[in-house]
Write a protein that binds this DNA or RNA. Structure first.
Lengths: 173, 173
DNA sequence: GCTAGTTAATTTCCTGTGCAACTAATTTTA
DNA sequence: TAAAATTAGTTGCACAGGAAATTAACTAGC
């Protein structure tokens, strides 16, 4: 009946008696476990936002990221995109393919190295972004509307710290 | 040659001249765009940690989450796991299947409703967790080692706020 | 200038997962 | 209490994406 409320049971108060609060015994509480919490939140945000790209612009996340990077880097190669976004190169390759087929980006072999391809937004791509970017920003603004400016800034700072630390430990090493 | 450094180019200083700093033009800066930053960070954390489950315990993320929830809820059903973790029920179903085949959990039809199955850790499952959980916690501890207690607390608080807001706006609605 | 090794990008193969359809058990309603 | 609707969990199908093999272009060593 009330799937919405049930979905919240894990984090919110006990609502539906059938799904009474989980915190019970001992051992690992995933709700206190940062990797889980962070991933769960990020997934939900990403998926919610992905609907915006997908339904309204037929873009998947990889494609959207590439467009966004191109919107402020002007010229890129697949390799750079991999480096900046941490996406797999196969994923990037396929996303680029799709974007080119739709005429949103152009790719021309780099003069100095024929293996590389210089990627640029086309007029169509730029036009699409002038519509999409404000929508994405509006969505983000709504998401962070309850945060103070300080909280927002601190959040980004802490995330930067975590990124650094991630490079120090593990993360493919 | 230096893939490590190149991977960092997006966020850190310009290092390899070939991959000089991206911030250039105008439009959307993904590094200031919370959904992207959050997802990127969470993915990297999740993937790094997933190697720990996968390589050493042959557990995928879904399976690990289920074990972890069982470690402190003692008895669960697939539905509850879906509600708590936001994972698709098919994914949960398959993960449960794998866990049962390996003898890490048991499932018995619930007496009061034969459609449901009560899930429990087996002795083997509990044993595995007594090894895995400390490792996961140690990994997390290392990850957050550079955060102060306050930063850590604030981070979780802000994340809770975002979760709330996410339920308010979009997120499947 | 030729061979061996690298590197950028693509493609192949395969696994995991989301969606939707389905099965089986339960509840509702009439 | 029989038929309709709902619900827990499973399965078929299709597709996204990661690992590794492949191709094409480049560089280094001789």
């Amino acid at each position: 009946m009330n799937t919405e409320e049930e979905r919240q049971a894990g984090l919110a108060m006990e609502g539906d008696e059938d799904l009474a609060g989980p915190p019970t015994k001992q051992e690992l509480d995933l709700n206190q476990f940062l990797p889980y919490r962070l991933n769960s939140l990020a997934d939900r945000i990403s998926q919610a936002l992905a609907e915006l790209y997908e339904e309204r612009y037929q873009l998947n996340i990889a494609q959207w990221r590439i467009l966004a990077w191109l919107s402020h880097c002007d010229e890129l190669t697949a390799k750079k995109i991999c480096a900046y976004t941490y996406m797999d190169k196969a994923r990037v390759s396929r996303a680029i393919q799709g974007l080119e087929e739709r005429g949103l980006i152009s790719r021309t072999p780099a003069p100095e190295d024929q293996r590389q391809q210089d990627l640029h937004l086309t007029a169509a791509g730029r036009k699409l972004l002038t519509k999409l970017i404000p929508e994405a920003q509006a969505w983000e603004a709504e998401l962070v509307a309850t945060l103070t400016a300080g909280e927002y800034r601190d959040l980004l700072n802490v995330m930067r710290k975590l990124e650094r630390q991630l490079e120090r430990i593990g993360d493919k090493g």
